[in-house]
Write a protein that binds this DNA or RNA. Structure first.
Length: 259
DNA sequence: CTGGGGATGGGGCCC
DNA sequence: CGGGCCCCATCCCCA
């Protein structure tokens, strides 16, 4: 008999409107975002940005010297400058030295700069990346700019590679949506697991009892129930538990509290 | 209250 | 570099 909790309560807060999110976050970059899988020549960037700056009333502040003679994938630009490319006077107003780095060469946690006249720039990361990166991902002519620190504009988490940052940003944009219920996920395999909740598919079977599971992790947890000695042992009393959460509950109690 | 199953999130690794 | 997968963790809910 199916357990009633299979009819889960709606979790609307977990279903993002990522289209809206993208529009809100992308800002100036959005107008070029349709070219995300291509490289855009510098002149095209310059022209489009001049147009876009004019549309937003910033034409007099637009300075083409900020646009290096390099190309950049728009998807990368969106990650680095989610609120748009920094305009010249924004950069000047940031007033954060490039050498303002952590002792290990990393980048400090970004924040909104009070001197940026309300513009949503991410400092000091954006300051360290005023130049477009070369195709090899390195920044030209400045060792400080070679600093591998990519910070999520949504939550300020930092990663050592752009790939890792892109992976993380998917947890905000949730690009994989279920065709059946519309729920969105960060990765395709998460969506696959979710779809099994609709189809009832259970490809993972317990070799002890034959019970099927839709998720390998849940099968692994289930296998613990067949074991005499559970995986997680209380160092205080020696009692074992199938899950770390159960051990934690146990130690949170009066028996063997955490020291 | 405890134990267990379902569902999901997220970092890391491998190809 | 990106996709797929693994593993761990966590939350929710029910028996």
């Amino acid at each position: 008999m199916p357990r009633s909790f299979l009819v889960k309560k709606p979790c609307s807060h977990r279903i993002p409107n990522y289209g809206q999110l993208l529009e809100a976050q992308a800002g100036l970059v959005l107008s070029l975002y349709q070219n995300e899988d291509t490289s855009i020549p510098r002149q095209d960037i310059t022209d489009q940005w001049r147009t876009r700056a004019a549309e937003m009333g910033h034409e007099d502040r637009f300075n083409t010297t900020l646009l290096n003679p390099l190309e950049i994938r728009m998807s990368d630009a969106l990650l680095i400058w989610p609120n748009g490319f920094p305009l010249k006077d924004n950069i000047n107003n940031l007033n954060v030295p490039l050498r303002n780095r952590t002792s290990d060469g990393g980048c400090p946690t970004p924040g909104k700069n009070p001197g940026s006249q309300g513009e949503s720039l991410y400092a000091p990361e954006s300051v360290g990346r005023l130049d477009f990166p070369k195709p090899d991902g390195l920044f030209p002519g400045n060792k400080v700019r070679n600093c591998r620190c990519f910070t999520c504009p949504h939550c300020s988490k930092s990663y050592s590679s752009l790939g890792a940052l892109k992976m993380h940003i998917r947890t905000h944009t949730l690009p994989c949506a279920c065709r059946i219920c519309g729920k969105a996920f960060s990765r395709p395999w998460l969506l696959q697991g979710h779809i099994r909740t609709h189809t009832g598919e259970k490809p993972f079977s317990c070799y002890h009892c034959g019970r099927g599971f839709a998720d390998r992790s849940n099968l692994r947890a289930h296998l613990q129930t067949h074991s005499e000695v559970k995986r997680y042992r209380c160092p205080g009393c020696g009692k074992t538990f199938s899950r770390i959460s159960l051990l934690t509950k146990h130690r949170d109690g009066c028996c063997c509290p955490l020291s």
